[in-house]
Deep mutational scan, measured.
Amino acid sequence: MVIEDPKTNKLIEVEKLPDGTYKVTIYDKKTGEKKTITMSKKDLEKLLKAL
């Protein structure tokens, strides 16, 4: 799943891993910076609600 946040000009890509956690990659379209973090479903839901 890919989500675009027009306010921050970032793309957020979410991928479910076999162990039940989620790999979240955040791309900054302005700088080209890429950050990848792994989080639980509960933390991911908090992140998505904040957008």
Rank of each mutant, 00 (worst) to 15 (best):
47 L>H: 02
31 T>S: 04
42 K>A: 13
10 K>L: 05
50 A>G: 10
10 K>S: 15
18 P>R: 05
23 K>C: 15
22 Y>P: 00
28 D>G: 01
31 T>R: 04
47 L>G: 00
43 D>W: 02
15 E>T: 13
47 L>I: 09
13 E>P: 00
2 V>G: 03
10 K>W: 10
25 T>G: 08
48 L>M: 05
35 K>C: 03
35 K>S: 03
24 V>L: 10
26 I>M: 13
41 K>N: 15
24 V>D: 00
5 D>E: 02
42 K>I: 13
25 T>H: 06
44 L>K: 02
34 K>L: 09
27 Y>H: 13
27 Y>P: 02
14 V>Y: 12
40 S>L: 15
42 K>Y: 15
13 E>V: 07
16 K>R: 14
5 D>N: 01
10 K>V: 12
13 E>N: 05
31 T>C: 03
15 E>G: 11
39 M>I: 07
25 T>N: 05
11 L>T: 14
16 K>Q: 09
19 D>Q: 04
27 Y>S: 12
8 T>G: 14
23 K>T: 05
35 K>Y: 11
33 E>S: 04
38 T>C: 06
23 K>W: 13
26 I>A: 08
11 L>I: 11
44 L>R: 00
28 D>Q: 01
10 K>D: 12
51 L>D: 09
9 N>V: 10
29 K>G: 05
51 L>R: 00
34 K>A: 08
38 T>Q: 13
9 N>K: 07
17 L>T: 08
23 K>R: 12
36 T>Y: 07
27 Y>T: 13
13 E>Q: 08
8 T>S: 10
20 G>Y: 08
9 N>R: 01
34 K>V: 10
5 D>Y: 02
42 K>V: 15
6 P>L: 15
9 N>W: 09
30 K>M: 10
46 K>A: 13
14 V>S: 06
32 G>L: 09
9 N>L: 08
31 T>M: 03
47 L>D: 00
18 P>M: 07
44 L>P: 00
44 L>I: 08
25 T>Q: 14
11 L>P: 06
1 M>E: 13
22 Y>Q: 01
26 I>H: 10
1 M>I: 05
9 N>G: 12
24 V>E: 00
4 E>Q: 01
27 Y>E: 05
47 L>V: 09
8 T>R: 02
3 I>P: 08
29 K>P: 04
20 G>S: 10
15 E>V: 10
12 I>H: 06
28 D>R: 00
12 I>S: 02
35 K>F: 02
8 T>D: 14
30 K>Q: 09
15 E>I: 09
11 L>E: 03
50 A>T: 13
2 V>T: 09
41 K>I: 10
41 K>H: 14
16 K>S: 11
13 E>R: 03
10 K>H: 09
22 Y>E: 00
18 P>T: 13
16 K>A: 15
32 G>K: 13
2 V>K: 01
41 K>M: 13
7 K>P: 08
46 K>D: 15
18 P>G: 07
33 E>G: 08
39 M>V: 09
50 A>I: 03
2 V>E: 14
9 N>F: 05
11 L>K: 08
35 K>R: 11
28 D>L: 01
30 K>V: 11
5 D>Q: 01
6 P>T: 11
38 T>G: 11
41 K>F: 03
17 L>K: 03
15 E>C: 03
19 D>I: 03
35 K>H: 14
13 E>H: 08
48 L>H: 02
30 K>G: 15
40 S>N: 03
13 E>T: 07
16 K>N: 13
38 T>V: 03
42 K>L: 15
26 I>W: 07
41 K>Y: 08
36 T>C: 14
22 Y>K: 00
26 I>Q: 12
48 L>F: 05
